[in-house]
């Protein structure tokens, strides 16, 4: 964001130095903001990549990070190709076929192999032990 403020400031100095109108200045600001937003939507910059890694709770070694980041840029360019398709009034297809809404009774049931279930975790009495939150 500091980069954007700096670019706006430099543009302002240049425009005023040249004695151009305030309209030109406003147009320049709109143009820069548009480029900035568009850029942020299409490409994943370093900051965005680090933010994503944090959200995903994924930590990468340097070599793996470089490789995956490079791969992701090319995959996103590939993903962008669907923008050309006119989807008109088509709705979002969450399932490929219609699935009827089927609900079960909200009733209690007994799970018979509770010990097998707990065997997959570190336990204390009949509790699963996890990290502190």
């Amino acid at each position: 964001m500091l980069h954007a403020v700096y670019i706006v400031y430099v543009t302002y100095k240049q425009v005023t130095a040249l004695g151009n109108s305030i309209l030109l200045f406003i147009l320049s600001v709109i143009f820069i903001i548009f480029i900035f937003l568009f850029w942020g939507m299409v490409l994943m910059d370093e900051q965005e990549f680090e933010r994503l890694l944090h959200i995903c709770r994924i930590k990468l070694q340097d070599a793996e990070k470089e490789r995956i980041k490079k791969d992701i840029e090319s995959v996103l360019e590939y993903f962008d190709t669907i923008q050309q398709i006119d989807t008109g009034n088509i709705v979002e297809y969450y399932h490929p076929i219609d699935i009827d809404e089927r609900l079960r009774q909200d009733s209690e049931s007994q799970f018979n192999d509770i010990n097998l279930l707990l065997a997959n975790s570190k336990t204390h009495r009949f509790y699963i032990v996890g990290p502190k939150i």
């Binding site: 993903f79 989807t87 709705v91 979002e92």
Partner: peptide, 28 residues
């Protein structure tokens, strides 16, 4: 890891309509 990162990205609020929602419509 690559798929988790990309999958999280395409669901992000700023690009969801561009990628995820658009893909669901293209599927239709």
């Amino acid at each position: 890891k690559r798929r988790i990162i990309l999958g999280t990205f395409v669901r992000g609020a700023s690009v969801k309509s561009k990628y995820y929602s658009k893909a669901l419509k293209v599927r239709g």
